[in-house]
């Protein structure tokens, strides 16, 4: 019992940060983390002993998040983040024009897959191998997804201004 706590609890701050970045709501984020921990504890015995605990936990959490996303989408209460891809960025507000656009808005402009890879690698410091396991992708796909995510983020933070220019590069 104590062993489980000793292994799980150091992972909680990172899980909370990843959850919050995904759902952007304190309560909902901690609900997600709680579901993740419950699931991990319930299936502790089935965890492969040599498996990477951190990657396992983040995979559980991300899978839970995705399932919830799909469920809401079926109910029609969630806009598909991909739909936003074609929407031009809104006119920059004064603070944005001054280069102060919130980086979180840039994160929101990404499809979930790109958001997750950016968070897992760039914020949670998962290795590319760990991120590949979490996302269930080959490592090459993780790298190109990461590349696309950062490119999109760059363009977004540029306020849409550079989008036209970059398209012809």
């Amino acid at each position: 019992m104590n062993e489980i706590a000793a292994l799980l609890e150091p992972q909680i701050p990172g899980l909370r940060r990843y959850a919050w970045a995904l759902v952007r709501d304190d309560e909902a984020a901690d609900d997600l983390v709680q579901d993740t921990l419950e699931r991990a504890i319930a299936h502790w015995a089935q965890r492969r002993q040599d498996a990477d605990l951190r990657a396992w936990l983040f995979a559980i959490q991300r899978n839970l998040f995705i399932s919830e996303l799909r469920r809401r989408k079926r109910r029609g209460s969630q806009v598909d983040p991909e739909i936003l891809d074609g929407v031009p960025a809104p006119d920059p507000r004064p603070d944005e024009a001054a280069g102060l656009r919130d980086i979180l808005a840039g994160l929101d402009a990404l499809p979930e897959e790109q958001r997750s890879v950016l968070l897992l690698v760039g914020v949670e410091d998962l290795s590319y191998e760990q991120a590949a396991r979490v996302l269930g992708l080959p490592i090459g796909t993780v790298m190109s997804r990461l590349s696309r995510a950062r490119e999109k983020m760059r363009r977004f933070m540029d306020g849409g201004r550079g989008a036209v220019l970059r398209r012809i590069k």
């Binding site: 609900d31 997600l32 709680q34 579901d35 419950e38 699931r39 396992w56 995979a59 559980i60 899978n63 839970l64 995705i66 399932s67 919830e68 799909r70 469920r71 396991r133 269930g136």
Partner: peptide
């Protein structure tokens, strides 16, 4: 739990 959590259990 508040959220129904379906598939994606491969891990």
């Amino acid at each position: 739990p508040s959220r129904a959590i379906a598939a994606a259990l491969a891990w």
